[in-house]
Write a protein that binds this DNA or RNA. Structure first.
Lengths: 337, 337
DNA sequence: TTGTAAGCGTTATCAT
DNA sequence: ATGATAACGCTTACAA
């Protein structure tokens, strides 16, 4: 129940002034070695911890980063671990808010973090967000803001993202290499950038290999729900059904898998399947599912590093765009050769 | 880039004193209606936001709750949404730290949050933690602390948890009802309370139904890894192999499922399977997996409510122990009748 | 080398 | 009903 010690306490007990104590504790240049030692000793004895509030109030910096993410799924929570790692190292604390993919919630969270006087933001925008005024307000206040994972051209800010197009390309080319001819893609909501880029990669691969593009094979459905299941059933009911499916998330791959099995089709023989994210579960299924891996932890670290840089640099870093490369993990669901 | 307005700014522009402004803003009793209106009007125009730092420094309260969790899996992140919901409502902000199931990390996080001058803690202890001095130090400081999900007898604090024993009982009785005779249980690390309670429930059900208890059928293995896969392979290799498995998490159920399929056994015919947590994936697998559901969101809300109460009540609440009830969702993996 | 005092933005106590 | 002023814990000119 003992109240934490302050520099005032130390000063009193040592019979010196608080500014001397302050200096001793921050090893300022002009300080007597003995006085300093005495202060340090006593401060340790009293288990002195500087009061962050007072410090922040004084120097108008909270050393806190506001992080807003649409959810806390496997990928995002891994990224946050990365952010946290770098932030801690640099003396920053992270405050995480989930928008739950809701525009309103995102605005609310932005306000809350602003209220908490965070020094800046690292955000991944919600899929619902089409207006970015709340984020622009943050920038107008002169606070550094890094966008990661879900970037958008509507926000001019330093960013870290996966080369999603490359991911789509890797997956599709692999399927082509395995002899699949008619590849469908299960995409997310049509306004979600990451989804669209992955589809772009898919299209790019087909063009590159001079494969006919059939728009019927590009299906949009709600993310992460078992909508993928129904979408796949429809795909499989086509008169010329696809012989491979690339889903832009592993969750959707699960839904697709369910439909495929239900139709009595076998993987990888009758139909190939490649997911995205490389979540741990894909290894536990039968067959194991091929998936495009993104270096989530490193992306989180990169975002935090960029933030720290933006924080310390005076110059604008709006143009900085870090793009990390995906990697395909081939597993049973698509390995035919 | 405009600096946020302060009460000082308002006072100056209105030619009144800052204390009057302060009063007007907090609708104190003794304030002239007109003055007040003028202040409120101008504060809105300037988009005045009270400085939380100054406020906290003054009244020695940050209105922030430190939350420490072992990870951010499905269950825990749902619980955090619940905590957040109630906290927001009550005017509190939540700061979440992951211990990654590491004792050292948990201590580190406790220190960080303490440094940040949180008003108290809501924690779920790491599976590695066997010494609780860091948490006891928190309590010694007089900060309220609520333990949730992973509670422990070593910590005397108000708590919210699932009736894990009941969960184990529900699962096991259901399997018995379905005619399974030789039920194995895949448990987590031996020092994890939630795991042990679920096993206790399993044992209780067997006793209740007068079924012989075979200690060989109680297997401990590392949580959430695919250790469950290997453990299941071993179980299935027994001369008298079990005809049903209850796993104390869905992740482990996935591993078990993999092994079962690999052995060419069918569910629910040859072998029954019941998991725990009722994660969304269990619905997407073939067969769908029966699972014990815990009201995660409500548990989070309950923990936060308890915290708020402990915060405002003067009396000790060490004795308060809230226990929520699990519910079994029967699916294909165990439905034989 | 050390002390004094102002200031960060707010609230609360005391006068007026 | 309003205004000074001290205080929260700390840093930092400036003075000694």
């Amino acid at each position: 129940m003992n109240k934490p010690a302050t520099i005032k306490d130390i000063a009193q007990r040592l019979g010196i002034s608080i500014s001397t104590v302050s200096r001793a504790l921050r090893n300022a240049p002009d300080i007597n070695a003995e006085t300093k030692q005495a202060v340090v000793l006593l401060s340790e004895e009293l288990n002195y911890q500087p009061n962050k509030l007072a410090l922040s109030l004084r120097q108008k910096q909270t050393h806190t980063i506001g992080v807003i993410v649409p959810n806390l799924d496997y990928v995002l929570s891994t990224m946050i671990r990365g952010i946290d790692e770098v932030a801690l190292e640099a003396g920053y604390t992270v405050m995480v808010c989930q928008s739950n993919e809701s525009f309103g919630r995102e605005i609310l969270n932005t306000g809350r973090l602003l209220d908490s006087l965070v020094d800046g933001f690292i955000v991944s925008v919600s899929s619902e967000t089409k207006i970015f005024d709340h984020f622009k307000k943050v920038q107008a206040r002169g606070l550094p803001m890094v966008v990661f994972d879900r970037v958008t051209p509507h926000l001019t800010a330093p960013s870290v993202r996966l080369d999603n197009e490359e991911g789509g390309l890797l997956a599709t080319e692999h399927l082509l290499d395995q002899g699949y001819k008619r590849i469908a893609v299960l995409a997310g909501p049509a306004n979600l950038g990451v989804s669209n880029s992955r589809v772009d990669g898919y299209l790019k691969a087909l063009k590159k290999r001079k494969v006919n593009i059939d728009r019927q094979l590009v299906v949009h459905c709600d993310f992460n729900q078992n909508y993928a299941y129904y979408a796949t059933l429809e795909l499989l009911a086509m008169r010329k059904r696809p012989d491979a499916i690339f889903t832009i998330s592993d969750r959707m791959a699960l839904g697709a898998m369910l439909a495929i099995k239900e139709k009595g089709l076998s993987m990888p023989h009758d139909i190939g399947l490649v997911g995205f994210n490389n979540e741990p579960i894909v290894n536990l299924l039968t067959p194991t599912i091929s998936s495009v891996d993104q270096p989530s932890f490193d992306m989180g670290k990169a975002a935090a590093k960029l933030f720290i840089e933006a924080m310390h640099n005076q110059e604008d870093m709006y143009h900085v765009e870090e793009v990390l490369r995906p990697k395909l993990f081939v597993r049973e669901s698509s390995k035919r050769l």
